[in-house]
Amino acid sequence: MRAGIFGVGHVHSESYAGNLRNSPGVEFVGASDSDPAMLAGWAARHDAAGYSSDEELIAEGVDFGIVCSPTNAHLPTVERMAAAGVHVLCEKPLATNVADARRIVEVCEQAGVKLMTAFPMRFSPSLTSGADWIEQGRIGDVLAITGTNRGHLPTDYAPWFADKELAGGGAVMDHTVHLADIIRWWLGIEPEEVFAETNHVLHPQVDVETGGLVTLGFSDGVFATIDCSWSRPHNFPTWGGLEIEVVGTEGVFTIDAFAQRFDLWSQGGTSWVDWGSDTNQLMIDHFAGAVRGEHDLFVTGEDGLRATEIALAAYRSAEAGQPVAI
């Protein structure tokens, strides 16, 4: 089975090349990007073939592709892939607006290609334990959840992350969707209401919000907060992290999804080095397996659409200064 990377604008494309090469039964073809300089650098780093357009990469004959272009460019690429019968694993958030996200889901449905949203945290063994504990009632009934998904200012890799047009926003767009997806997955229900406060105290040099606190309200009275701020300084030991805590009537559990790490103090500084399971690899192996017909998708395009809707509702709430219905 042949696979390519459509767009290298997203930092995750840096890991996916190796993941595709390591995925059993998958042959990595190369990557496409319309930015020649970006593509050339990427191709050299990964010793891979570069294609200057989606069409050229599709013409090489690929069974599935990972979409890693800036968020507002997802839809046209997905349309081209779907038309050619190429299965789609799309970076999150799916799109910068609900209409485009819905269209991505529709075109894949209509073309009969599989669509999965790139939520690698769904494959995190520690977060899977959390899902099991909730299902088994280990902490009684869930009362509330707090999640944090904080990171560096991501513009060090590519400036588009802080471009409202290309990314749809800043920290809220970048870091609300993973936790929104995990919380939906764990609770098995959809939020009804979203409240958000955002600010722009961190990184005044960019033009989007850099801090955000989002609250989700669910029908059964359960609520959850998400801290999506780009609040890790550039010398933080790693890119950021994802932590989640669930308080129930019979107990509490806390998961640091990136706790499996070495603390490495070198003369040049401190860094955290992951030794835990590679969730990107697990995600790609799962998608490849689904394309081969071995199992159903665990994460769908619909999941990506819902998470995108939540992030966009957060912007509406921040604007209104009040909670909004979703």
Binding site: G140, D141, T146, F195, L213, T215, T225, V247
Partner: peptide, 23 residues
């Protein structure tokens, strides 16, 4: 928001906005 379930002893999460812009 505060937990409303009968089994809760009291659990609340709050978001504050400060005049200087902090959250």
């Amino acid at each position: 928001r505060q937990a409303q379930a009968a089994g809760s002893g009291g659990h609340a999460l709050a978001t504050l906005r400060h005049a200087g812009g902090a959250l």
